[in-house]
């Protein structure tokens, strides 16, 4: 018995047995998709909370990167940094243009990388075409098109609209260039989004519901677009037509409500 114990102990620290430090490092697929009730190739029709019937014919979102982190942000807003505290546990660093009207899984070009411990608690979606800190970035982050009609107003005016949102110097906060101001990276990062634990099989899915982008938007206030004959969301905060619609769209884009992380075995 004693010999067996010694042998087992010796085997346990022999060549073939390397101790575990905890958790696993995994590479996995990552994908994004539109809402589950959307139909690929078809427009998405919905009614906003402000009473507008919207038929969305185009909604494309450019995602620069996604991250999951172990920690929750410090309340009180002391931290203005773009990186979260604690250990990042998952990352997808390749960009993707997501068709938000397609519920199908749209894979990111490269595998994501993550660790199973510590557990992911919050997520970030980086809406950027390049360097998160670059003062200018011409990349269209959100492109939308459709028609909005006042709900219940039969025969009421419809407002065909388009919209392109960039997050560049146009959205640099007035004070962000000075000490104490918010850096442009903060404008490009959507967080905190509830995260999901990383597992050793399956993949990470980010579902985006474009309907949330139009919450509170009064389409009647959209400025006219002479080039299309319809309306267009302004992307220029200095223009007179920016408020309130352009601002609302930009603000909704950066809210966490449209974004949901999940772990799926379909990847």
């Amino acid at each position: 018995m004693q010999r067996a114990c010694i042998a087992i102990w010796a085997l346990s620290i022999s060549t073939g047995c390397v101790g575990q430090t905890g958790g696993q490092t995994v590479d996995f697929s990552a994908a994004a998709a539109g809402p589950a009730d959307a139909v690929a190739g078809q427009a998405l029709a919905f009614t906003t909370g402000a009473g507008w019937d919207v038929v969305l014919t185009q909604a494309t979102l450019h995602i620069g990167a996604m991250y999951l982190d172990e920690s929750r942000p410090i309340s009180g807003g002391q931290a203005t940094g773009c990186y979260l505290t604690g250990t990042y546990v998952a990352q997808e660093t390749s960009g993707l243009d997501v068709d938000l009207l397609n519920p199908g899984l749209q894979l990111f070009p490269t595998k994501a990388h993550g660790i199973t411990e510590p557990t992911a608690l919050i997520g970030q979606v980086w809406l950027t075409g390049g360097d998160i800190n670059a003062s200018t970035d011409p990349t269209p982050i959100l492109v939308v098109a459709g028609t909005a009609t006042q709900a219940g107003a039969a025969g009421g005016s419809s407002f065909p609209f388009t919209g392109t949102v960039t997050i560049s110097s146009n959205h640099q906060a007035a004070s962000s260039g000075a000490a104490g101001g918010d850096p442009i990276c903060k404008a490009r990062i959507v967080t905190p989004i509830d995260a999901v634990p990383i597992e050793t099989t399956g993949g990470l899915l980010l579902q985006i519901d474009p309907r949330a982008y139009f919450a509170g938007v009064d389409f009647s206030k959209l400025p006219a677009d002479a080039s299309t004959g319809g309306c267009a969301f302004s992307d220029d905060p200095t223009s007179t037509g920016y408020l309130p619609t352009g601002y609302q769209l930009y603000t909704n884009l950066r809210q966490t409500a449209p974004y949901t992380f999940s772990w799926t075995d379909s990847l």
């Binding site: 490092t25 991250y67 250990t87 990388h113 998160i132």
Partner: peptide
């Protein structure tokens, strides 16, 4: 080693521990 590092070798920062 296996820890987080970012040497600007990818378009976006590499923030997760890696080899």
């Amino acid at each position: 080693y296996n820890y987080a590092s970012d040497f600007h070798s990818q378009p976006q920062p590499t923030l997760v521990p890696d080899r």
